[in-house]
């Protein structure tokens, strides 16, 4: 029996409308064989954590271009843990300075992709690092 495909939630927290990256990543992951759920824009951390539970995903990818990454990543991480989703991979991308990316990774975020990352890099990372929960 074949295993179910890995499910990834691509989520867009915050108030900004920059969804070009999120949509490209969602499509590239889908083309790469993953099952992708896209939340759409303007999600609160609570909405994202709830969607992760409802959709029973193996990973959550956040796209943040508003500068609010240092607030939003930890908030979502905490909510996921609170819902018992500690094994769910949490990654993201956007306009995130390198020192912030390092700090987030130290705090337990699995990976941060910054401008210039190709969709192949991201799909490759997802294949290597996301496991079924």
């Amino acid at each position: 029996m074949s295993e179910r495909p890995i499910r990834i939630l691509i989520a867009k927290p915050g108030l900004d409308g920059h969804d070009r990256g999120a949509k490209i990543i969602a499509r590239a992951l889908r083309d790469g064989g993953f099952e992708v759920i896209y939340t759409g824009l303007h999600q609160t951390p609570e909405m994202i954590a709830e969607a992760a539970v409802q959709e029973d995903v193996d990973a959550v990818g956040l796209s943040i271009l508003s500068g609010a990454h240092m607030t939003l990543f930890p908030a979502i991480q905490k909510l996921l843990e609170g819902k018992g989703l500690k094994g769910v991979a949490l990654f993201g991308g956007g306009i995130i300075p390198e020192e912030d990316a390092n700090e987030l990774k130290k705090g337990g975020i699995d990976e941060i992709f910054t401008p210039g990352a190709s969709t192949e890099d991201i799909v490759g990372w997802a294949r290597d690092h996301i496991r079924r929960n």
Partner: peptide
């Protein structure tokens, strides 16, 4: 359409 003191504004005030 949110004031600076609204909960949805948290982390976004004056950023962009």
């Amino acid at each position: 359409g949110y004031d600076a003191d609204h909960e949805r504004s948290l982390g976004e005030v004056g950023r962009e």
